[in-house]
Design a protein around this nucleic acid. Structure first.
Lengths: 149, 149
DNA sequence: TTACCTGCAAACAGTTTGCAGGCCG
DNA sequence: CGGCCTGCAAACTGTTTGCAGGTAA
């Protein structure tokens, strides 16, 4: 499959849209900072390279990237949305430390298989899923022992 | 374990709070409508029995119930939060039809075990998890075949 | 030149909070 | 009777949208 930049250009053409520096910049930043960014964080980084950009454009671009299946919203229940670039052939879920917020990307064929089995049992055609594990990482466990919180 | 109503009363006492008709009513409705309600929906139902209640109280009560571990926010990424009563000895995840919104509650020991294994591998102490499967249910699949959308 | 795209600010939706009065204990 | 609780409305936060001007093709 083609690189994200090309896919964005294709999607844009196919939908009668036009390319723009802003859109390319947002995508570029998302590819560079392989984090799970909020629009706000993305906006801050983008502004460093192009101070004139508006946050509305970042929102619009992120939505466009999701529509084009280049990025996706993370399935984490919070008041603010976080996004990441989708790299197919590398589907993963997340393990999050609720103390320090650290993310680990995980994947398990066994779980995937079991999900398919469950969906089939209920006569659903599975289109997507999200799995998030919450826990305390080793470092935070150490810290918590030492402090009297 | 004691029923939710008792647990609420205990929690309230233990925290130097007071009981109130409004709080009990909200809990009662949540127990009765075993749905995955938004605060707005809950508010509408509650108002039918007590028209003077304010939505802020419903928000405050739902938060209280979550603090007391009597209810929890569903791990579904949407702009609006949904809540459900926690019935221990009946942990479940969700399978959702993205077309009609129907929920099915699911559970799998095999997945639970695998999750524990993964957490251990990354040296996390697992505290919680959320699994949501998205798909199209049998009925919606039929409908989609019939229509030209 | 013709749409589309952008930045701005206003609008929105969901949720939280400050306040004055009410009620539990 | 003191302190928590409530309803109301205003405040807040994250996100979307209308508009006038800018820009890709």
């Amino acid at each position: 499959m083609k690189p994200p930049v090309d896919r964005l250009n294709n999607h844009v053409k196919e939908h009668g849209m036009k390319t723009s520096t802003q859109r390319n910049l947002v995508l570029e930043i998302m590819l560079r900072d392989k984090k799970h960014l909020t629009v706000e964080e993305l906006y801050e980084t983008v502004k460093a390279e192009n101070p004139d950009i508006g946050i509305a454009t970042v929102y619009r671009t992120v939505r466009l990237l999701c529509d084009a299946n280049i990025a996706r919203e993370l399935p984490i229940t919070q008041q603010v949305s976080r996004y990441e670039i989708i790299s197919e052939r590398d589907h993963h879920d997340h393990l999050i430390c609720t103390s320090c917020g650290r993310f680990v990307e995980i994947s398990s064929d066994q779980i995937e298989q079991e999900q398919i089995r469950i969906a089939k049992k209920h006569e659903f055609t599975l289109t997507d899923h999200s799995l998030v594990l919450y826990g305390i990482c080793k470092d935070c466990r150490k810290k918590e022992k030492g402090t009297t919180v």
